[in-house]
């Protein structure tokens, strides 16, 4: 603990300079601080607070898509009408991250850069084709989420790169999205198994589908076989079942205190089916409750 430092950055450049000198960024602190108190990982020797950097907490529209600043909180996402209306799968996810306190403090940038295979916002954003803008000492670059995550808690970004924004392209007309997870309680929960789907309907048929699985592999990833199984015809039971089965087949679950391998594998089918069905319903214009996870069981 000797010599621990904490500075507050007032610009992205400040933050990147501090990170290049070895500091770790902190905003909401919901992963960093909680992890340290749990004994998972001690707090870094040098921290740079990024929560006061102006301009990083906005939700903006761009050509029908969205630009989310790194400091946008989960509670801001859940309460945003455009997120709820056209990027509903992200609202499903942000609505159930941690507890009320986590959602008020935790940021989208932190959630994505934590690179947990169980993070809630990852699967819907991946299916929506989101990219992230990273600022480093050498300038800025934009990469897809599938390129960002390298393993559990591991990033392809280097330690001196700061996520500054998340860009979500405009969905095609007739698109609906959903994120569903298996959870044992309604607050303070982490995904046991999760799935997201983004489905575009046209003339009663599935024109495009993106399906991703959560907490079922070292990183959140899309399942092309599942997507292919859903596209090309009406979203009937056979097609949905085939897609859900393909999603589950791609799972490489671990057994841990939250669930066994067998149970996770069985639940992968259930969660994938529910995510797909909810996304299809939303694509058809039906109003489905947010978050979708709570309406999938219970009262």
């Amino acid at each position: 603990m000797m010599g621990a430092t904490y500075t507050t950055a007032s610009s992205v450049e400040d933050a990147v300079a501090a990170m290049a000198a070895g500091a770790r960024p902190v905003a909401g602190g919901t992963d960093l601080v909680v992890g340290a108190r749990q004994g998972k990982k001690p707090l870094p020797q040098a921290l740079v607070g990024i929560h006061k950097i102006p301009g990083l907490d906005g939700i903006g529209e761009s050509d029908g898509g969205l630009v989310l600043g790194a400091l946008v909180t989960h509670s801001a996402l859940v309460s945003h009408p455009i997120v709820r209306g056209r990027f509903t799968g992200l609202a499903d996810a942000s609505a159930i991250v941690g507890s009320h306190a986590t959602r008020a403090n935790g940021t989208i940038g932190g959630n994505l850069m934590n690179a947990s295979p169980a993070m809630d916002t990852g699967a819907p954003l991946l299916c929506m084709g989101a990219t992230v803008e990273l600022a480093g000492p050498g300038g800025r670059r934009t990469i897809g989420l599938d390129e960002l995550w390298a393993g559990p808690g591991q990033l392809s970004a280097s330690a001196d790169e700061l996520l500054v924004s998340v860009n979500i392209p405009a969905p095609s007309p007739g698109t609906g999205s959903a994120y569903v997870r298996l959870q044992y309680r309604r607050q303070m929960e982490i995904a046991v198994v999760g799935a997201a789907a983004v489905v575009t309907l046209g003339g009663g048929a599935v024109m495009d589908a993106r399906i991703a699985i959560t907490a079922l592999a070292p990183t959140i990833h899309r399942v092309p076989d599942a997507e292919a199984a859903l596209v090309g015809g009406p979203p009937d039971e056979a097609r949905v079942d085939a897609a859900a089965a393909a999603a589950a087949a791609a799972a490489r679950p671990i057994g841990d205190v939250r669930a066994s391998v067998e149970y996770r594998r069985a639940m992968a089918v259930v969660m994938a089916r529910r995510a797909i069905m909810t996304a299809v319903a939303r694509a058809s214009g039906q109003d489905m409750a947010i978050p979708a996870s709570d309406s999938t069981y219970g009262s």
């Binding site: 749990q38 507890s99 309680r185 309604r186 303070m188 939250r258």
Partner: peptide, 27 residues
């Protein structure tokens, strides 16, 4: 939901409030 899991030697596997699942007000 509340269960202490032990490893084969009798060490607790979930000694914390994330994986020892208390019910919440929302439940």
């Amino acid at each position: 939901s509340e269960m202490t899991m032990f490893d084969q030697d009798g060490r607790q596997r979930n000694p914390g409030l994330l994986d020892y699942k208390l019910q919440t007000v929302s439940d």
